[in-house]
Simulated assay, not measured.
Amino acid sequence: MTFDALPFPSLTPAFDVTVDLAPPEVHGATSAGFRRVVPIMGGRISGSIDADLLPGGADWQLVRADGTIEVDARYSARTADGDLLLLHASGLRTGTPDVLDCLARGEDVDPHDYTFRTVVRIETASRKLDALQRSLFLASAERQANAVRYRAHRVG
């Protein structure tokens, strides 16, 4: 069997997320690198999942020497039926130094001018949403002054 015979993954739009953010907490240079923690204040999921993001999560960012940010966000959501979801988004945000500086200042930047991608995994105890735990989602995101918005695609 050749590698060309392996199935090619497909992407199906699944849901959209808006994450409302507090200002970053700059921890500075730690043993792991330059660390920032961005508290999550709330937000919304819409599409194949409809839920409100709960305050209390955060994005534990590691800022590389070249300005690339390693994203490690974990947050919870609750559906209208009361089902709880735990979302874990990990990925990278990178671009040219001038674009990254604009984003750091909270300026609006066209999301086509930088790369912001995450892999999203979902955990839940809900039987009716259990299929989410067996799916992997790839998201394309944009950073706004006080929010992150992304569209997640189910990887098939």
Rank of each mutant, 00 (worst) to 15 (best):
2 T>I: 05
3 F>I: 09
4 D>G: 07
4 D>W: 05
5 A>N: 13
5 A>G: 06
7 P>K: 05
11 L>I: 09
15 F>D: 04
15 F>G: 05
16 D>P: 03
17 V>T: 11
19 V>E: 03
20 D>G: 08
30 T>W: 04
33 G>Q: 06
34 F>P: 02
35 R>W: 00
38 V>S: 01
39 P>Y: 01
43 G>H: 10
44 R>V: 09
47 G>C: 04
48 S>Q: 13
48 S>F: 11
53 L>I: 14
54 L>F: 02
54 L>R: 04
58 A>P: 02
62 L>H: 02
65 A>Y: 02
67 G>F: 00
67 G>I: 03
68 T>A: 14
69 I>N: 03
72 D>E: 10
73 A>E: 02
74 R>S: 10
76 S>P: 00
81 D>K: 09
86 L>Q: 06
87 L>T: 01
87 L>W: 00
91 G>L: 03
92 L>R: 11
93 R>H: 03
96 T>M: 07
97 P>M: 06
101 D>M: 12
109 V>L: 13
112 H>A: 15
113 D>G: 11
114 Y>I: 10
116 F>D: 06
117 R>F: 12
120 V>I: 15
122 I>P: 12
123 E>A: 10
128 K>A: 11
129 L>K: 07
129 L>Y: 15
135 S>W: 05
135 S>H: 07
138 L>F: 15
139 A>P: 04
139 A>F: 05
141 A>G: 10
141 A>V: 07
142 E>N: 07
143 R>M: 12
146 N>V: 04
148 V>I: 15
